[in-house]
């Protein structure tokens, strides 16, 4: 393949990676930004979303698009409920201490993985995309659904941004983020806000998974990689900065797509990983954060 189409494909793949990253990271960013909680189980919420999407696709009859639409609604609700439960039963009682929540969410990670292994099994299973068309370019074919994922992730991000910036719920969340005690003094039920934010974070992870699972597969160990990547995106973007998260996802997705197209892939991964570390070393607040973490 000649250079031009090659680069085009790399860029398209990079856009898809960016979309996936941004989708997976936005929930984590929210939880991290508002609650200051490092949720190690975030990737497992993602996994649960994908796995439950598979169950929905088995139960709902009719064309794949119907099951897909059902999954888009049911899976985030289901996972959000689990997240809210985890918040109320465990995290709240830990007073959201950083180290304590890390350990608790590692515990949660194991519990969720085992639940998936026991009830869903060890196999990777495909979930059908709502529609199947291939964009046939002169040089190569490309999945139409992947392009739809890019568009959908833009919509989701826009929605989250509107929720935070323009709605009353968002105002309450931002107030709680800004100063928990003062928010409480103004009659905001901080406990409920936290449970809600954690549920929203989990639900967003599940929503991301439902969108992404047709181009990957549902598997009980699939949560690890999104977790690691989401973390990187959130930190590089800057704590709690939605804009930063999006730009970091674009930066990492595109550079990963392009670098590993032209160099030995494993070497490219090493270089990219070191670059992320060095960005943080010299700019600990991330690219768009206002203060150090």
């Amino acid at each position: 393949m000649s250079f031009g189409p090659f680069l085009l494909l790399a860029l398209m793949e990079g856009m898809v990676t960016s979309a996936v990253l941004a989708l997976a990271a936005v929930g984590l960013s929210l939880v991290f930004g508002i609650m200051r909680v490092v949720n190690v189980a975030h990737g497992e919420f993602f996994m649960l979303g994908a796995v439950s999407a598979w169950f929905v696709s088995q139960w709902v009859p009719g064309p794949p698009a119907v099951a897909f639409a059902a999954a888009l609604i049911l899976c985030p609700l289901f996972v959000g409920a689990i997240a809210a439960l985890a918040d109320m039963v465990v995290l709240k009682r830990l007073n959201y201490e950083p180290e304590a929540t890390i350990v608790a969410t590692i515990g949660l990670l194991y519990i969720l993985q085992q639940a998936a292994l026991s009830f869903y099994g060890p196999d990777a299973r495909p979930v059908p995309a709502p529609f199947n068309f291939r964009v046939q370019l002169p040089w190569f074919g490309y999945s139409g659904y992947k392009i739809a994922v890019v568009a959908a992730s833009a919509l989701v991000l826009l929605g989250v941004w509107r929720l935070l910036a323009k709605s009353r719920v968002g105002l309450i969340m931002r107030a709680t983020q800004y100063d928990r005690e003062t928010a409480r003094a103004f009659g905001i039920n901080v406990d409920r806000v936290y449970a809600g934010v954690f549920a929203l974070g989990g639900g967003l992870a599940a929503l991301a998974a439902v969108l992404i699972v047709p181009i990957q597969q549902a598997h009980y160990l699939m949560g690890t990689d999104p977790l690691l990547l989401s973390f990187i995106v959130v930190i590089i973007g800057g704590l709690g900065s939605l804009r930063g998260t999006v730009i970091a996802a674009l930066l990492i997705g595109l550079s990963d797509g392009v670098i590993s197209t032209f160099f030995a892939p494993t070497l490219a991964k090493i270089v990219a990983t070191l670059l992320v570390a060095l960005v943080l070393v010299f700019r600990p607040q991330g690219l768009f954060g206002r203060r150090a973490l």
Partner: peptide, 13 residues
Amino acid sequence: IPPTETSFTRYFP
């Protein structure tokens, strides 16, 4: 292909 990879299209060209 690196073992941590989850997407492969970009290697096919």
